[in-house]
């Protein structure tokens, strides 16, 4: 067992662990905002709806180059978020139904595009949807001068993670205020719509960058699970962010460990680890836990 844990930090799994942590961290930070904004499912929606964006980007650029892919995905993420608002405002369809309509339709269009142009679009559908972190190419490495920064996917994901953290630090105040009381934010002159789309843009970017590693559905687990767990454990948003990040690291570590032991999907393992921590918090959180409260009452 000790040997296996050491393996996790070794040359092969070390990068996978680092990659997983970069993905989970970005997700956990953004997910914390989604959870308190009651928008958890927008992650699910965007992660499916970017498929046509990827397909179109691929058709135009003819390759899986990172920049067109990212642009296509961000554009599609914004479109999704806009369409959901549009449909729910211009008709009496509720927001959750609007979400379901928009993302499933876009997803279907994506699948059709890919199969129509199957010979031109070399997108591995299974990969986009399931993802497998152990398949990410570890070679070549990215060098900054002589400095070895690690494999390309890792460098990109770390970059995304850095941008996410930076934006959140810069706009922390505004993000929290618009989440808590958008009316007050509007009356104080905070650009509420801009902040909303900024967040959506970050979520889309993160989701697309994470596709290869974890896939469209399990990225939702990474967005929600650490944030929801942290939400049960603290009363301050700043602490919630830190705790969510901590759980992101723990989930990745345990998820990877058990996935290797069981010879199973790593992303799945991370999702299950996240759920396990959530259940623990749900039952035993000092202030919120089901069991703790029952004991207090007894």
């Amino acid at each position: 067992m000790i040997q296996e844990i050491q393996n996790l930090f070794g040359p092969v799994y070390g990068w996978i662990l680092a990659m997983g942590i970069a993905v989970s961290l970005s997700c956990a930070v953004l997910g914390s905002f989604l959870v308190v904004r009651k928008m958890s499912l927008i992650g699910d929606a965007i992660s499916h709806a970017v498929l046509p964006g990827l397909a179109i980007a691929f058709l135009f650029s003819g390759s899986r180059a990172t920049i067109p892919m990212l642009l296509g995905a961000i554009a599609m993420g914004m479109t999704t978020s806009f369409l959901i608002e549009f449909v729910s405002q211009k008709s009496f369809i509720k927001k959750d139904a609007a979400t379901g309509i928009v993302f499933t339709s876009l997803f279907a269009i994506g699948v059709i595009l890919i199969s129509l142009f199957a010979d031109k679009i070399d997108l591995d559908q299974e990969c986009v949807l399931y993802g497998e972190i152990t398949f990410i190419p570890l070679e070549p490495h990215f060098y900054l001068g002589n400095l070895d920064l690690g494999p390309y996917p890792f460098v990109i994901m770390s970059g995304v993670c850095l941008v996410v953290v930076l934006v959140v630090i810069l706009f922390y105040k505004e993000l929290v205020l618009t989440s808590f009381d958008p009316a007050l934010a509007l009356s104080l002159g905070v650009p509420v719509t801009f902040i909303h789309y900024l967040l959506m843009g970050l979520v889309s970017t993160t989701i697309v960058s994470a596709f290869e590693s974890v896939g469209a559905i399990l990225v939702v687990a990474m967005l929600i699970a650490p944030a929801a767990t942290a939400y049960l454990l603290t009363n301050r948003f700043s602490k919630m962010l830190l705790l969510a990040s901590l759980f992101a690291v723990l989930n990745t570590f345990f998820g990877l460990y058990f996935a290797i032991r069981l010879d199973a999907s790593v992303a799945g393992g991370i999702a299950v680890a996240g759920f396990a921590f959530f259940l623990l918090a749900f039952l035993f959180s000092p202030s919120q836990g089901l069991v703790s409260r029952a004991i207090k009452r007894a």
Binding site: K38, V176, S179, F180, Y231, N235, R236, F237, K239
Partner: peptide
């Protein structure tokens, strides 16, 4: 009622 009082702020 205009805000969510469960929001994790002090």
């Amino acid at each position: 009622e205009s805000v969510d009082w469960d929001f994790p702020v002090t």
